[in-house]
Design a protein around this nucleic acid. Structure first.
Lengths: 139, 139
DNA sequence: TTAATTGCAAACATTTTGCAGGTTC
DNA sequence: GAACCTGCAAAATGTTTGCAATTAA
C-alpha cells in the first residue's frame, strides 16, 4: 500500500499566491481537488470528495473558499437549477448544455456557438457577457 | 371611496379551465395579478402584491399554484440567481437581460437574437430550447 | 358527498453568520 | 502578536410537506 502524504503539485501554492490568496492547507486541498480539470461541482460534491480523500473541510470553510475563488477568478458560478450553485472550473467564456433530466451540465466551447445579432444593452448599462444554455432532455 | 369586490375579467376562469385548472378563488386571484402583462415575479413579490390588495394567500398555496401554472404552461421559471426562482409570464420563446447590480430581468424578443451555429445535443439527448442571458451591469 | 384545495406550522436544503480557538507571517 | 483563517453551531432564506379543515364539483 502506498501512503500519499501531500501529493500536491508545487504549482498550487504559487497559483494561489499569484491571485492574492494565501495558501492555507484547506485552500490548497480544495484547489487540488477542483482546479486543473474542467468540471462542474456543487459545494456538497466538493465536501464529499474531500471527505473521501480523508481531507474533510468544514462547511463554512468550503463556502468561504468557493466564494473567494470566484472573487479571485479561479472559478465561475453557474445558475441553472434554483436549488444549488454549481461551480465551473472553466473560467474562460463558454456555454452550456443543461440536461433537465439528470441535472448534468456540460461545456460548449465558445467557438461552437455563433451569435450574429444581439440587441444593445439598455441605457445606462453595459454588457458583461452572454451565456447560452441549451436545455436538453434524454431521448 | 370605491369598494371593488371581485373586479376580475370574466376571461380568467375560462383561461384556467381551458388548461385543465379548476378556477378556485386563490387561483383566479393569482392569475389576475400575474397574467395578462409581461413581468418577472418571485413568490415573495407575488405574496406581497396579493397582501397589498387585501387578498393574502398562504405561502403553501402560492407555491402550489405557481408550480401548477408552470406545469400547465401559464408561466415559465427563470433561474439566474442562485437564491430564488423567478416566474416569467411570457411563455413564448425569448431571451433575457440580467442586471447583476439590480437583479432585474428584462425580456429580449426572440427575433433580436440570431444564433447561426449551435452544436448538436450529445448522443441520446434532444434539445428542448436555447436560453440566452445577456449579463449587464450599471455603467 | 367525495375528491380536490387550502392554510398552518413544521420540516427541509442550501448558504451565511457569529464567534472562539488556531494558524500564519 | 496582529491579522487572518477555520470550524462549529446557530441563523437565515427559499421552498416543500403533513395534515386537518374547507371548498368545489
Amino acid at each position: 500500500m502506498t501512503i500519499m502524504i501531500s501529493a500536491q503539485p508545487v504549482e498550487i501554492p504559487g497559483m494561489l499566491e499569484a491571485r492574492g490568496i494565501s495558501a492555507t492547507r484547506q485552500r490548497r486541498e480544495i484547489a487540488r481537488v477542483l482546479l486543473g480539470k474542467a468540471q462542474h461541482v456543487t459545494a456538497e460534491q466538493l465536501m464529499d470528495e474531500l471527505a473521501l480523500h480523508g481531507q474533510a473541510i468544514s462547511k463554512a470553510t468550503v463556502y468561504n473558499t468557493l466564494k473567494l475563488f470566484v472573487d479571485k477568478g479561479l472559478l465561475r458560478e453557474v445558475h441553472v437549477d434554483a436549488t444549488r450553485t454549481v461551480y465551473d472550473t472553466t473560467t474562460t467564456p463558454h456555454h452550456h448544455f443543461y440536461n433537465a433530466d439528470s441535472g448534468q451540465l456540460s461545456d460548449i466551447p465558445l467557438e461552437e456557438v455563433a451569435i450574429t445579432a444581439l440587441p444593445n444593452p439598455p441605457e445606462g448599462t453595459v454588457s458583461e457577457g452572454v451565456d447560452v444554455i441549451v436545455r436538453i432532455r434524454n431521448r
